[in-house]
């Protein structure tokens, strides 16, 4: 008995540094940001007098911030859908005993090794309307595929999505492939013995088993996309008429160029709120299932 409680004490003691660190670096700093967001600190000199919700209200009225929210939602949805779709497709194809699987896998996965900044700069070249893929399309007779890409406000955001999908879809491919390989053979055999077609096996046996994988991928990709900064900053900046602007970029410019620290903090808090909307149900779910048996 004594032995066990001593071990337990050790366990708690060893966990403590992490808890303290996260307490300061995450919750302490969020608290600081929340406090600043309610202050009048909109010049370079700190002014922490209470301003109520002034900064939040100013944001809600701002044309740029409205565009940011719209862009973030569009970006997150299309980025998630495309990454999951392509990842699943590639995983299923790779699962068909293809020759050179390892080579394909490495090719699909390597963009993850590259920083968002390099990705952004490279895709900025590739999607430049007067050169890049447009030039390529011309040369191979696919001229009808040409587009103004990120210089066209109505589709600019999708150009950024394309770059993000390039970078992250290999990751969903890997997750799904791992998931597919984890499906017990007996289950598939049983389904086939029952006369299911290959399509039905995928649709009714394998896909449902991949739900946890999808959930993890949504969480990982979702939070990346809600707070995306480097990629947009390096690739398009705000874009024409803020068509690729996101809260991360707005926050950075407002705070560090415009010296409006309180407004910047308010943007951060709203970003945090968006992420929380995605994450908290997931954390809650994790907690509930943990608390069970």
């Amino acid at each position: 008995m004594l032995r066990i409680s001593l071990d337990r004490l050790i366990a708690i003691a060893l966990l403590l540094p992490s808890l303290v660190a996260v307490g300061i670096f995450v919750y302490g700093f969020i608290g600081w940001t929340a406090y600043v967001s309610l202050s009048n600190w909109n010049t370079f000199v700190p002014d922490l007098s209470f301003a109520g919700l002034t900064n939040y209200l100013a944001l809600m009225r701002s044309f740029r911030f409205q565009a940011d929210l719209r862009n973030t939602l569009i970006f997150t949805f299309t980025f998630l859908a495309a990454s999951l779709g392509i990842g699943l497709l590639l995983a299923v194809l790779l699962d068909q005993r293809v020759r050179g699987e390892a080579v394909f896998r490495n090719i699909f996965l390597f963009p993850m090794a590259i920083s968002f900044i390099v990705t952004g700069v490279t895709w900025q070249w590739l999607l430049n309307p007067s050169t890049g893929v447009n030039l390529l399309f011309d040369q191979v007779g696919l001229g009808f595929l040409k587009s103004r890409w990120y210089t066209d406000p109505s589709i600019a955001i999708f150009s950024v999505v394309l770059a993000a999908v390039w970078q992250m879809s290999g990751f969903t491919m890997a997750m799904y492939l791992a998931g597919l390989r984890g499906v017990p053979d007996e289950l598939l055999e049983a389904a086939r013995v029952d006369g299911a077609t290959e399509w039905q096996v995928y649709r009714y046996v394998i896909l449902p088993l991949l739900h946890p994988v999808t959930l993890s991928a949504v969480i990982v990709l979702g939070h990346i996309s809600l707070k995306i900064f480097d990629l947009v900053y390096a690739m398009t900046g705000s874009g024409p008429a803020f068509s690729t602007d996101v809260p991360g970029v707005f926050m950075f410019e407002t705070t560090f160029r415009g010296n409006r620290f309180a407004e910047g903090a308010a943007i951060s808090m709203i970003m945090l709120l968006l992420v929380a909307i995605l994450i908290v149900p997931y954390l809650w779910y994790t907690m509930r299932t943990e608390a069970g048996p």
Binding site: V22, V26, F29, I30, F229, G248, I267, S268, M271, V275
Partner: peptide, 13 residues
């Protein structure tokens, strides 16, 4: 609570 730290936008802190 520990996990949540993964999700904060770093430029804000």
């Amino acid at each position: 609570l520990l996990l949540f730290g993964m999700f904060i936008p770093y430029q804000s802190i």
